[in-house]
Amino acid sequence: MKILVTAKRVEDPESKIKVKPDGSGIVTEGVGYKINPFDEIAVEEALRLVAKHQGEVVVVSIGSDKVQTEMRSAMAMGADRGIWVKHDGPCDADLAARLLKAVIEKEKPDLVLLGKQAIDDDQNQAGQILAELLGWGQATFASKMESLESEAEAAKTPGIAIDGKSAKVVREVDGGVETLQVELPAVITCDLRLNKPRYASLPGIMKAKKKPIAEMAPAALGVDTAVKVKVVKLSPPPGRKAGIIVPDVATLVQKLKSEAKVI
């Protein structure tokens, strides 16, 4: 079974993001970069699935030459090879999906795993767009019934159950969890509780250096790189006024009653 999984390069979720004074972008000095956390979960799930069903994990990333770092991280976790779609310039979820579609038509994977959302643009769209463009089924926000502290998780059991022709996917939805069955090939997007991604081992990191990365250009894939969503301006969010520290519960209750009037 061949699984294609995406790895977007994003700002480290731990770093402080600030808007440039002219609103044209964010300040990148001092900001770390890493693989999108949801994509890391997708890579982990792909590795567990091939450990169980045999096969190959191909990692794809779209971006400047820097994204090779994140592809190497995915390969250090265990992905077999990489496809780098070289594209500088803006890339909305729609363009990412159109580029991925072109790669998928070449690679013909049995399953495509993405993160549910990229933590930079927070759009939560690419997987769903991709499924429609391919005419495939989609199962978004894949999770699992067991908790991340369960024995199943400790045993690195995949949360997605595959029987050859279809996948059973537990999804996080409003008010509970839902189970869908989706025919393969399919697009599945991964949520936080699907698994705990492994750390790359030292031998894994060494091996990853020798794994192949194929380079593809949007033009060669026949994809127009015009975006549908343009970011016009960025600004900082409205701030909250700093509050006060109260000494005890009695003062808190009094403030909530007479000052804030919320209880």
């Binding site: 700002e11 979720p13 402080k16 993001i17 600030k18 808007v19 964010i26 933590i119 930079d120 643009d121 927070d122 975006v227 549908k228 969503v229 343009k230 970011v231 016009v232 301006k233 960025l234 600004s235 900082p236 969010p237």
Partner: peptide
């Protein structure tokens, strides 16, 4: 119409144009 939306976990508010 431009759409105001959060990015980077709400650290940034963007105004975006949908060109379609």
């Amino acid at each position: 119409v431009l759409f105001k939306r959060p990015m980077w976990a709400g650290n940034v508010i963007a105004e975006v144009e949908i060109t379609t």
